[in-house]
């Protein structure tokens, strides 16, 4: 098989995930887009591992590790989203502006650190 097929598919999937991370408002949809990006990387790893015929099969081992890390990430991420939703009544990433630099009268950052990473992704 031509190596360009899986490589191009992985690149396009990564860009679709990138668009989703930047454009979505609901935090859970942002997490879905992150999953798409991780899967694109997995496809690249598998394709290049099969192409190189690595004796250690590093690509496939890394793919399994990334799948496990993605499972851990989605668990922690959903717990954070649930906590934010319980505290704020909304899981929209562009409403979590407690640590925004433009806000002059910034309130004390209470539950904000949990949402700061997602906000940074959403407004990047």
């Amino acid at each position: 098989m031509h190596l360009a097929y899986p490589a191009v598919l992985a690149a396009l999937l990564f860009c679709v995930g990138l668009y989703g991370v930047l454009a979505r408002r609901n935090a859970i949809l942002v997490l879905m887009s992150v999953e798409l990006m991780l899967n694109a990387v997995n496809l690249n790893l598998v394709a290049f591992d099969v192409w190189l015929r690595d004796t250690l099969h590093a690509g496939q081992a890394f793919t399994l590790f990334i799948i496990a890390i993605a499972a851990a990430e989605i668990g922690i991420g959903l717990a954070i989203v649930l906590m934010v939703y319980r505290n704020r009544g909304s899981s929209d990433v562009d409403r979590l502006r407690d640590t925004a630099e433009t806000d002059e009268s910034a309130p004390a950052p209470g539950e904000a650190p949990a949402a700061a990473g997602e906000k940074a992704e959403a407004t990047a």
Binding site: L18, L22, A23, R24, R25, D92, T123
Partner: peptide, 15 residues
């Protein structure tokens, strides 16, 4: 309101 306001920027970046 599933998409936030920076959708055109996201589209440009992704493309």
């Amino acid at each position: 309101d599933a998409d936030s306001g920076n959708r055109p920027v996201a589209l440009v970046v992704a493309l």
